[in-house]
């Protein structure tokens, strides 16, 4: 059930990237896809335990710490991608005064 909801979140991001014409919304779609992947890894890694992976006061049956450590990296890379893409979109807007990709294509080809 969790995986189905996360899959729907991922599809939302993919739909935004493929179909929506606005560049800013496409970048939001990339962020949503990344969030879905992060959620999937955290949820699947938490299936084998119960408590947070902090070893104090004789905690046992912890969740898998590997996906959490890797998803930290993924979050940072997502922030990098978003910042760079927003910078490029800002440049495009300053040059062509539009965010719509169809208008952009017309203005570039003309």
């Amino acid at each position: 059930m969790n995986e189905l909801l996360i899959y729907l979140i991922f599809l939302t991001g993919l739909f935004a990237v493929v179909f929506i014409k606005n560049i800013i919304k496409k970048i939001f779609g990339l962020g949503i896809m990344n969030s879905a992947v992060v959620l999937l890894f955290i949820v699947r890694g938490a299936e084998i335990g119960e408590s947070a992976p902090i070893l104090e006061n004789t905690v046992y049956n912890v969740v898998d710490p590997i996906p959490q450590a890797l998803m930290l990296t993924a979050i940072v890379i997502s922030v990098c991608i978003t910042a760079l893409a927003l910078g490029l979109a800002y440049n495009l807007y300053l040059t062509y005064r539009t965010f719509d990709i169809d208008e952009l294509r017309d203005k570039i080809e003309s």
């Binding site: 995986e3 084998i48 710490p65």
Partner: peptide
């Protein structure tokens, strides 16, 4: 995403 493979516990 939807295929369920049991998560390995050895590394944990």
């Amino acid at each position: 995403m939807l295929t369920r493979i049991p998560w390995p516990t050895e590394l944990r």
